[in-house]
Design a protein around this nucleic acid. Sequence first.
RNA 1: GCUCAUAGCAUC
Length: 308
Amino acid sequence: LTCWNAMISGYVKNGMVKEGRKFFDQMPVKNLVSWNTMLSGYTQRGEMCLAEEFFEQMEQKDSFSWNLMLDGYIAVGNLGAATKFFQSIPNPNIVSQATMLNGLAKHGSIAEARGIFDQMTEKNVVAWNAMIAAYVQNCMIDEAVKFFNEMPERDAVSWTTIINGHVRIGQLEEAKCLLNRMPCKSVGAQTAIVSGFIRINRIDDARQIFNQIRNRDVVCWNTMIAGYTHHGRMNEAFELLQQMAQKNTVTWSTMIAGFAQVGNMEKAFEMFEHIGERNVVSWNSLISGYAQNGLHVDALKCIVLMMR
RNA sequence: GCUCAUAGCAUC
């Protein structure tokens, strides 16, 4: 059963929800984990109608099930439904609260997010991190710093968030100080610094930092590539692209936008063809690329293609 | 590698 559940998980994590469902339906025995895994396939892709239908069919639900639904509503931006759903959760746990906190913060309701935080009887590092991120996203760096200093324990996400907070308001020096203070420098925190250099147009300095990072992940590579593409340095971007082991949709979209910006729509389309899982951003990058280069017919063709 | 929440990357 554990094996079968892992199979469903594998399907839905790769965006193959249909196939996952087929597998799920054919399983002779299922447990709650099977149901939750399948549910996550819908909620994480924003298929909330299907999720609701599936959720109602579940004869047993646990906090995972409820939290998945809550996060699904937040992911599609339906804060009204999320708030209502949150209030209907039988026993909201720390994950439910952190999820709701995050949802409120992401939609600008910082005071309400803070309200949830204050109401939490127990707070873990994720709750603290979510609250710090909330302040960072709302450009309230002083509050973010205050929480960062007050929190009982900090993990790599805490550091990355606060570093990024300083990067976003152009305080790269302070960001670098924080990175120096960080006990175990994560790829994420270092990537935030790279993007800080890029933000102030110091691309070559960013590259120096990038080169020094060990265990670079796909986000790190994408950050550096975007640094080049935003400045029309497509040769360097392409060179990095060829060096990276695993590319994702963000990688390709970055390249599409980059080639579009320098007027090379042939190359942009070539990048587009590599995308396995096309999303709204990949289509947007291509369509706006055609439009910005005056190729309105191609843009329209693309829109038609997208809607099929 | 059986299921849930927080950070660093792309379009507008």
